[in-house]
Design a protein around this nucleic acid. Sequence first.
DNA 1: GTGAAAGCGCTAACAT
DNA 2: ATGTTAGCGCTTTCAC
Lengths: 345, 345
Amino acid sequence: MATIKDVAKEAKVSIATVSLVVHKHNRISPETSKRVNKAIKKLNYHPSRSGRRLVSKKTGNVGFILTEDHFLRSEPFYTRIFLGTEFEARNYEYYILLTTIPSDYNEKSHLPRFILEKNIDGVIIAGKVPSYMIDQIEKYDLPIAIVDYYPPSNEYPVVLIDNTSGGITATQFLIKKNHKNIGFIAGDIDHPSIYDRFRGYKMAMDAAGIQFSESNYVVDENYTSRENGYNAAKKLLELNNDVTAIFACNDAMAIGVMQYLKEKGIAVPKDISVIGFDDVEADLSLDPPLSTVRVPKYEMGIEVMKLMAELLKDKDSTKKKILVSVELIDRGSVTVCSEKITMPA
Amino acid sequence: MATIKDVAKEAKVSIATVSLVVHKHNRISPETSKRVNKAIKKLNYHPSRSGRRLVSKKTGNVGFILTEDHFLRSEPFYTRIFLGTEFEARNYEYYILLTTIPSDYNEKSHLPRFILEKNIDGVIIAGKVPSYMIDQIEKYDLPIAIVDYYPPSNEYPVVLIDNTSGGITATQFLIKKNHKNIGFIAGDIDHPSIYDRFRGYKMAMDAAGIQFSESNYVVDENYTSRENGYNAAKKLLELNNDVTAIFACNDAMAIGVMQYLKEKGIAVPKDISVIGFDDVEADLSLDPPLSTVRVPKYEMGIEVMKLMAELLKDKDSTKKKILVSVELIDRGSVTVCSEKITMPA
DNA sequence: GTGAAAGCGCTAACAT
DNA sequence: ATGTTAGCGCTTTCAC
């Protein structure tokens, strides 16, 4: 393993010059620079992180924290975000240290060891975490950036999904296809992301001047699983047998909806159109494949790393909140409304 | 942030003494030791990793590599292994650096940056990776340990699932419940893990003296997905309408099997018993919940980290291969064979 | 049993 | 434009 000394010797300069060249200081003559770079290549020199860190008092690491539940979720959502972060970190020469915390983190839990041992320069938090934990981290005076969660103390740079816009987009898409009696189903409605999707739905319906009532939505499931999607679809159809389209607050629930419809012999999209939200792998292997609103998970990871990089440069540089935009993906589970006219009484 | 100097001053000793105490050298008097430890606690001193690494030429990091496909799999398999590794790493004061490689890693791909930059002391490989990549890593003279993959050059310490035993266990369980006409379905049969499960099935059938033929198994699906499980179940029942139990090579396929049976109005377990392999979250929300063979993912992560720790201590210490044992989990998708007697002609 | 001191690889202030 | 040097926090050898 070549060191700065080896390079200096090879290029016949001092180690300071080598350091300067590595850091692209412009007060080195082009010739010297060239010579040094040649030596660096020849010796395959990579500056030692330990040496650097020792003098810079930085670790070169960024912590990435999420709850165990989120990490082990069956749909790869946070794992994709992580991948984006890890990728972007390369541009800033940072390494990402991933760890999970228990979902019920409390007074008795201890913080991730990379915080206790001060082996990171900043923390990225992904998804909802107990706010008690954030309070604890706060004490360590580390830059914090958050992705896909809006913490109660909203003083942090955050990357969020533009859920409201997504809700509008999905609903408008159905409206454009002539649907009027549009059902909405959700679970965990108090979760800000879910609630915003619901709001988007209502806004689009209102804007289009479409009458809708409580019999148009079922939002009382406690969680957004396939199973609950199945149940919610059942409830919805019992409530309102004339819906021609269903907007599920996420793909998991949409999958449950489709399963229910299939069992009932209701054809998708011929009899009822279905649209989801998220864009997960499973959408593609459905029959028909599920139309949905794509959430750019990987990009969210990139964005939050960018925020972190800003913070790392200058602790108070940013309190930016970024809303990443979503995109409609039409795959075949939505079609033009088949003129099933609801007769007025 | 307290340094060794601060501690030395506080305890009124030299920094060398502090270092000795930290490393539990026994040539320090108990009294001094106590005094130093008190100072360490008081100042909340944690030895700086950078300082340590600089002198030890170690990074204190271990790389964890898996393909992107595996990381993003919908069932949390490798993520659980990672969690086990990360947990165990604490005992050895190592940090785990997670990264993915493209599944089609080839001559044009570059190794993970933590290898190129020598920011790790060893590499753990999880799941099947292109053997070309292993060859590349080989050049860096890093200790390598592998979990859930048997590489062509079998010279590495490895942690594997005892698949054969699991196949036997599952099949014997069905046999004990009086089943004789037992179907087996699989995909990706060339994968060693899958093949071994199949072998276990055949061994148990043979050992019990049960006749079975090619109409007992469908193993030509190319991948072990739910969808393929559905298709394989269909094929199997067309081939052999008298099966009273189906052993699916993994839970994903078993779930597909159950879906098919449900659609056909075949009751599980009343008409046909079903057993899977792996033990994934989704098993529990099935109706009935799926009986299966549990693979101890978390423990596999722990085991591979232990192997790595041995290697890290002494490069040539071990070429151990560890077979982790599996365990039958009976949940309700298997029942006693309902005496459906296959009449001899 | 304890301390002094060298040196790991690097950066940056200062000197030339 | 380039070199000299101190010092980051630690381990370890050697001396006392």
